[in-house]
Amino acid sequence: MKAVTKKIANRYRYAWVVLCGLVKTDFKLRYQGSFLGVIWSVLQPLMTFCVMYLVFAKFLRMSDGTPTYPVVLLMGTSAWQFFADATNVGLRSIVDRGDLLRKIHFPNYIVVVSATVGSLISLGINFIVVFIFALFNRVHFTWRVILLPLNVIELYAIALGLTLLMATMYTYFRDISHIWDVFQQLLFYAVPIIYPLSYLINTVGEPWGTTIAKVILLNPIAQTIQDIRHNFIAPETQPTVWNTLNHWQYGLIPVALSFGILALGVFVFRKHSRKFAEVM
């Protein structure tokens, strides 16, 4: 029994060492050659936020009318930036690291995980920026902040599951990256990031507005980003699947979908990972 335990510990210790090494390398290479370096991980969502706020909040008046809306918008763009970066970088990770996989023996999934963890580090940095903005906007924090790690875990599960699926498909079909670029744009506008759900409800009108909002919240990405906003910044003004749908059991649907996507991604990746070296 001790021998088996020691063997398992040694196996995952090696995987952990490789993962840490790849995360450090990927994070350094991401900003290599740029003048500002890692600062871009903060500037990129900030610049996106400024554009979104000026166009949609100021000119098109897509706002919930609350003082916390700018921070809510910044939090949404930061969360989406993580999801987009993790999937875009991760789906190419197996092909980009093909030479390394052929030369050194280690679990293939580490390559995908390292790519997504780099984006997770950037999200952590952005959380600090959002927290500073929240202090300047006098956001009233509540006990729900302790639920934030659970929301981040769920968002990471969605991103990792989709990335494992697409990294597997990209190894065989390079067109996946172009298809994902288009689908990602559609998904961005299907999630309430640049517009609050209250604006959608008021624009469409009752009862269809509320019905559409409930359907949107069943999307696990929308549900997770709304939960992050709700628990971190504005529990009074941010609708979630838990307080919008009539029964709390419906809130388990997007959560189950999130971890179902992760399970499917792990299954598909493990099934095809042994053939990656041959295909590449």
Rank of each mutant, 00 (worst) to 15 (best):
V139S: 01
F133S: 15
V113W: 03
V129M: 12
P70V: 11
L120T: 05
V38C: 10
V89N: 14
G118Y: 00
F82T: 08
F27N: 13
Q32S: 14
T142A: 00
F127I: 09
H105Y: 14
V130D: 02
L54S: 14
L43D: 11
L36R: 05
R144L: 03
V23S: 01
T116Q: 05
I125P: 07
S41R: 08
V117L: 15
D99K: 10
M47T: 15
G37E: 13
K58L: 15
M52V: 11
R92N: 14
F136M: 14
F59C: 07
P149S: 07
L19Y: 00
N126H: 05
L123M: 09
L19D: 00
R92F: 10
L147P: 02
G21F: 04
P45C: 03
L46F: 09
T68E: 14
A79L: 07
Q81M: 10
D64F: 02
S63D: 12
V18D: 01
K103Y: 07
V113D: 02
I110Y: 01
C20P: 00
N151M: 01
L123D: 06
S63H: 08
N88H: 13
H105D: 13
F133Q: 06
I146T: 00
A115F: 08
I94F: 08
V95A: 11
A57C: 12
T142G: 01
Y69K: 05
V111K: 04
K24M: 12
V113F: 13
Y53L: 14
V111S: 09
V139A: 11
V145F: 00
V139R: 06
